[in-house]
Design a protein around this nucleic acid. Structure first.
Length: 278
DNA sequence: TTCCAGGGATATA
DNA sequence: TATATCCATGGA
């Protein structure tokens, strides 16, 4: 996709490939805030901030770290080619039309794993609440916002800390995960093939098949993964096939169908279904 | 009051 | 390997 930079801004004129609302509100990240007064989104990734301001003819991404957010927003990928390739089904076509300009982000690994451990059997509003309280109570105060906590800031927190910010029964998973994470990070599993990497992720506390697929897609950019949650299970039965399958089997069904474009198809369908646009 | 949310861990067979 | 049950919390 074409874009340019000017001072502390990234300028994007092709709004069909970059819509702040659709990128932010599709459930792949949780630390963002919409400001009605300025019609803009603020998004925090780790300790970095970007502000997305939408105008009639363009979107401006304001940030102090332009290279980081060029990668974060995956700006060098052409989504119009992808959209054309997966429009094989009227529901996918309708889903894409409902959220054109959605992009899959390249997010920080630790923040993504923690976010999706918290997401299990939870709703987006409460996931955001829990993660923001985690940042406010353990992360660095950056003035206008709180950074997501680093591993060093989290590793000595006990289970009670995570319970106190509302994580519920996931508190013990988070504590156990942090103990496992040091060796996980050291192992450099990023070189593994997607299926092997998924197995390693599932060994982590609080990470099952669905959460692993979210980590694969949103942190490792493995677009040959297809997270199946309660909404995608509904989409499968409503739009694709009446045959009863478990969630991992539904995921395999879609990966066989969409291959390396599975993750994109999944995000369009998730946005469409979870926002009850059908 | 009951159901549900970007499910996972555990027990049981 | 396959199924059933339990799990904190808060909004609908």
């Amino acid at each position: 996709m074409e874009y340019s930079t000017l001072d502390n801004k990234i300028l994007i004129f092709d709004k069909s490939q970059f819509c702040p609302k659709h990128i932010m509100e599709c459930g792949q990240l949780f630390r963002f805030w919409f400001d009605e007064k300025t019609n803009s989104y603020k998004v925090v990734s780790g300790n970095r901030l970007a502000t997305l301001v939408e105008y009639k003819d363009r979107v401006e991404v304001e940030t102090d770290d332009i290279p980081y957010f060029i990668n974060y927003f995956d700006l060098d990928r052409d989504y119009n080619i992808i959209k054309e390739k997966i429009k094989d089904n009227v529901f996918v076509k309708t889903a894409i039309d409902s959220c054109e300009g959605l992009r899959i982000l390249r997010q920080d690994l630790l923040e993504t794993i923690i976010s999706f451990i918290v997401s299990a059997n939870n709703n987006i509003k409460r996931i955001k609440l829990i993660l923001n309280r985690m940042a406010e109570n353990a992360g660095e105060n950056m003035g206008d916002y709180f950074a997501f906590p680093t591993y060093e800031q989290l590793k000595d927190k006990d289970e009670n800390f995570f319970a106190s910010i509302g994580a519920g029964y996931r508190a013990k998973y988070l504590k156990k995960f942090l103990i496992q994470y040091k060796d996980f990070k050291k192992a450099n599993y990023a070189v593994l093939a997607t299926d092997e990497l998924r197995k390693k992720l599932i060994e982590l506390a609080g990470v099952g098949p669905k959460v692993a697929d979210c980590i694969l897609l949103f942190a490792y950019n493995r677009t040959d993964s297809f997270p199946v949650d309660t909404w995608m299970e509904k989409a499968y039965f409503d739009f694709f096939c009446k045959q009863k399958r478990t969630r991992p089997e539904i995921a395999k069904y879609f990966v066989k169908k969409y291959g390396d474009l599975s993750g994109f198809a999944q995000q369009y369908l998730f946005y469409y279904k979870s926002n009850k646009l059908s």
